[in-house]
């Protein structure tokens, strides 16, 4: 379980997170939804130990983050994390070199599924293909948790379909997933839990199937109620 407890963070005088608490379970997809603002990405970075926060606590499987945690949790940001002059194959080799949890077989499978060529240079990839490579770098790690920042933003419709495909084929199944997004359309049926974040505050946290079952509302209905209140 990932536990975020009362996390606050300022950039200069601007409060980006004002005491945020939520949990993300293993085997569930938790979606951080926010219409605007930088809070979502900051939150993911804070969980990953990529940005310090001012107060509060974040625990992953009951522990604070340490180097070994990176074999158990991975982050797929919306920017590519490999050197531009690397070929895809070299990026894979780098991952295999440093991570025990790298699953080369799965990386190969995903590469084939996306019809990418391992001799392609990262700097030559289109935005959609770069996002796919980024996704492979995260998903081919045998980790417990995957954090994804806006996996669909700025990507063409066919790439989005492919990525959504991979979600159900390779992503879930016993892993814990946190996805941030500002538009829910692509993944509304996929997520277990929605966390609505606005201006650094969590406005609502709910189980999506429960809200459909008990209140007959779609996720967008709830977003409309909460964000426009």
């Amino acid at each position: 379980m990932i536990e975020v407890k009362n996390v606050a963070k300022k950039f200069g005088r601007k409060k980006v997170l004002k005491g945020v608490s939520f949990t993300a379970e293993k085997g569930q997809i938790t979606c951080l939804i926010g219409i605007n603002g930088v809070g979502k990405t900051t939150l993911l970075k804070a969980i990953m130990g990529l940005t310090p926060f001012d107060s509060g606590e974040i625990l992953i499987n009951g522990e604070k983050i340490h180097p070994g945690t990176y074999e158990k949790i991975t982050f797929i940001p919306d920017t590519i994390t490999m050197l531009p002059n690397m070929k895809i194959r070299e990026a894979f080799t780098f991952m295999a070199d440093f991570y025990n949890s790298w699953n080369a077989e799965r990386a190969g499978e995903l590469l084939k599924f996306f019809r990418l060529n391992e001799d392609d240079r990262i700097s030559d990839l289109s935005k959609g293909n770069a996002a796919k490579v980024n996704l492979i770098l995260g998903l081919a790690l045998d980790v417990d948790y995957v954090l994804m920042d806006e996996p669909f933003s700025g990507i063409d419709i066919f790439s989005r379909e492919q990525i959504a495909d991979v979600f159900t084929s390779h992503l879930i199944e016993d892993r814990g997933v946190i996805i941030t997004t500002h538009e829910i359309n692509d993944i509304e049926h996929l997520i277990d839990k929605a966390v609505l974040l606005d201006n650094g505050v969590i406005l609502k946290e709910f189980d999506t199937e429960e809200i459909r079952e008990n209140e007959g509302k779609s996720v967008i209905d709830v977003m409309r109620e909460v964000f426009q209140a």
Binding site: P77, I80, M82, P84, F98, S123
Partner: peptide, 16 residues
Amino acid sequence: GKNNFSYRLFMLPSVR
């Protein structure tokens, strides 16, 4: 640049 290798570097499972 548009590539953020720092992400990868600081997410390596090794003492920083």
